[in-house]
Amino acid sequence: MTTPSRRAHHARRALAVIAGIGTVSLLLAGCTRPSAARDTDDPAEFFEGQTIRWIVPFEAGGGTDTSARALVPILTEHLPGNPKIQIENIEGGNGVLGTNEFAKTDADGLTILMTSSSTNTAVLFGDPAVQFDYNDFTPIAGVPAGGTQYVAPSTGVTDPLSLLDTTSPLIYGGITPGGGEFPRILGMDLLGLDVEHVWGYQSRSAVQIAFSQGEVTIDGQSTAAYLESIAPLVDRGEATPVYSIGFMEGDELVRDSAFPELPHAVELYEQKHGTLPDPDMLEAYKFLVLIGQNLQKQLWIRDGAPEVAVEAFQQAFIDMQKDPDFEAVRDALGGYDLLVGESLESDVAAALYDPPQEIIDWLAEYAKREYGADLSRG
Results as ranks from 00 to 15, higher is better:
47 F>Q: 08
317 F>I: 12
41 D>N: 12
285 Y>G: 00
30 G>P: 01
376 S>W: 01
292 G>W: 00
43 P>A: 02
321 Q>H: 05
175 I>G: 09
183 P>L: 13
298 Q>H: 04
48 E>G: 09
98 G>W: 06
358 E>L: 03
16 A>N: 14
143 V>Y: 11
156 G>V: 05
306 P>N: 07
38 R>F: 02
36 A>S: 15
7 R>L: 15
51 T>F: 14
276 L>N: 06
356 P>L: 04
163 L>K: 07
26 L>M: 13
353 Y>F: 10
67 S>G: 15
88 E>P: 09
185 I>S: 10
72 V>K: 04
314 Q>Y: 05
370 E>Q: 14
99 T>I: 01
109 G>V: 02
108 D>F: 06
235 D>N: 03
187 G>N: 12
300 W>M: 09
191 L>R: 10
100 N>Q: 03
137 F>G: 10
269 Y>K: 09
103 A>L: 06
23 T>H: 14
70 A>G: 15
31 C>D: 15
143 V>D: 09
307 E>F: 00
275 T>K: 11
37 A>Y: 07
9 H>M: 11
82 N>M: 03
160 P>H: 02
319 D>Q: 03
355 P>H: 06
127 D>G: 06
172 Y>T: 15
333 L>Q: 08
326 F>T: 02
65 D>H: 14
164 L>N: 12
21 I>H: 12
204 R>L: 12
18 I>W: 12
248 M>Y: 02
107 A>E: 01
50 Q>S: 15
156 G>L: 04
56 V>Q: 09
85 I>A: 05
219 D>W: 00
278 D>S: 09
103 A>W: 01
369 R>G: 01
195 V>L: 10
353 Y>W: 08
